[in-house]
Every structure is written in C-alpha cells, then in structure tokens.
Amino acid sequence: MGAVPVKFYQVGSFAVGNRLLDPDLASVQSDPERANSLTSGHRACQGCGEALGARYALDAIMRATKGQMIAVNATGCLEVFSTPYPETSWRLPWLHSLFGNAPAVATGVAAAMHAKGRDDIRVVGQGGDGGTVDIGFACLSGMFERNDDVLYICYDNQAYMNTGVQRSGATPPAARTATTQTVGPEPGNVFGQGKDVPRIAMAHEIPYVATATVADLRDLEAKATRAMEFRGARYLHVLVPCPLGWGSASCDTIKVARLATQSGLFPVFEAVNGEVTSSTKIRHQVPVEEYLKLQSRYAHLFRPTRRDDVIKKLQAMADRNIERYGLLEPELAPAVPAAMSNEPVEVA
C-alpha cells in the first residue's frame, strides 16, 4: 500500500504538512531540516515537475537511509539543469556518466559498496523517460534481471524535453512533440502500445515496483521510503509534468499531475515481486478532457475542430487503467493505528 492515510486533520492526507500532525507522521518535505538533496539555484524551468519529483524522492530516501546514499544520474534535463559547471545543486554524492547507462553505473556503485562491505550505503539510479524507457532500457532490464541492489527512479515527463520536446517511448498517443507534429489526418503521436515500463519491470519479478506523481507527495514519499526496505532491484516511476513540453501553465504542474491520476490516464499503484498489491484510488474522477485541455500539446484535439474520436480513444485508455488497477473500487480499510484513523483523537 502507499501512504497511510491521515484523514484526521483537515488536509492531513493531501497537503505537505500540518502544524498539528505528530512529527512521526509528518512528511519529509514538511521538515525544515529536510535534506534538500536538490537545492536552490538550479536552472530548471519555472514550475519544473522533475525538479520537484527528484527532491521529493531523494529527500525521502535520504531520510530513510540516514544520508547513506549515492545517486547516479542519466543525461537529461535533471542532469543539465543541476550541474552546469561551476555549480551543482546536489547535496548528496552524485555521479553523471551517460544518457543510456545510469542503471549500469548504479549497479557498479552498488557492486563497489558490496565489495567493500558497505551495504549500508544505498544506491539510486535516476533519469528521465528517454534515458529510462528508450536509450537506457537495456541497462535497466539488465539491472532488473540481475536483481542488483539499486532503486531506479524514472522521472517521466513523456518526451525528450532536454533536446527540445521530441517523442520518446513514453510519449502518450495524440500528444504533440517536435517529432510528432500536429499535421496530417492523425496529428500528434500515434496510437500504439507505448512502453509501459512499470509493467515491464514487474515482468522481471523484481521485489518492488511502484508508480507515483508529484501530485501526491505522501504517496511518493511512502513509496520511495518503502523501496528502501527491500534489497535487490526496485523501480519507481514518477509522473512529472513539464510545463514547457506539455504546454501547461507553470503554476499548474501539480494540478496537471493530479488530473492525470484522477482521469485514470496515469495509474498509481505498487507491486511486490511482480504482483500488484495496491492502487491509489481515484478520489474525484474527471473525464480525460479535463486533463487534456490544460495542455497545449493536446490543443489540436479541441481546435480548430473537436476530435471526439481521439478523445474517446484516450478516455478508453483511462477506462482500461481504471478497470485493470481497480482505481474506482472502494478502498479496503487499512489497519492503521488509532492515531491515524478517521476517528477523532485527543491531542497530547
């Protein structure tokens, strides 16, 4: 399961923090002493979802590992905006090698730690969707197959943003990119299978696979933290909207991610040893259109003529996710301590 719901306080489960929350239940991001693994001064665009997702995930892991971690980064926006000489925004041991080899480099770091008897130092590989689902995929699969002791995090913004928004294997159908332009009878990216790396990761039967978004911090932190409870290969796929590439307002980054989940287009779930063990239920279901219309990469679905045929196909994708992951099924009552239940409690 994802985050333990904290329903008691007015915003307990959803906002970053709450002044009344028991410190043990507080999110990492609400902590003024959080690691800020990725600190200020980085050159990410305004409203960058990836900068946010990376700090969320890595700060949680920094807490979970008590700072004993090393990160390996694929080439891409995250790398470029964080480490242009002479400045780096990282505050943890960090290595960038190449675009397509981050999982293998991470394996090397993990192997080194194991050889040195320093298994307490944990290793995280990370990259964007291009570096993960496309060019780095062989290394990723190899790392999974060997069950190397690495958590790999994909910050998925659904295209090659660093090079100017070209299509990747994670670009959704109908989306406009610089290489799937809105011309011809089927504008935007083609409809196909896409590359569903979380499911491919599950097929490797690695110990832990999860998806998350920047719209649900507690869920993301819970998954990043839980991932560190396992040894072996783990995979975390985080949806991180890109205002530049998606054509969304910089202030809407979290909103867009939220609508991706609430429409069902991006299922949030976790899987242990290859089996889905929980999914995050949709709270307020919205039609996919609510999600699409905030992004100019889908503008051609609404103007000059409305493409109901395409919107319907996208809705069908969302519906399939809802069905497959039970996103509208009632939440099973989690066994939570009284202090976290929906029942009123006394404040000490």
Partner: peptide
C-alpha cells in the same frame, strides 16, 4: 575475495558498471 563479478548485458554496460564502481572507489 571481496570482489563482485557482474555478468552484464553488454559491453556498454560492462564499461558503465566499471565507471560506477571506480567512481565509488573500487578497483574495477
């Protein structure tokens, strides 16, 4: 002893694993 032997999936990965290991202070 004290040596990890990693059967990688390609030479690209082989050098990449060596890069990671070396950067982490291991003789690779």
């Amino acid at each position: 002893t004290s040596c990890e032997f990693v059967n990688v999936e390609s030479e690209f990965a082989a050098m990449s694993v060596a890069i990671g290991a070396s950067a982490a202070g291991a003789r690779a």
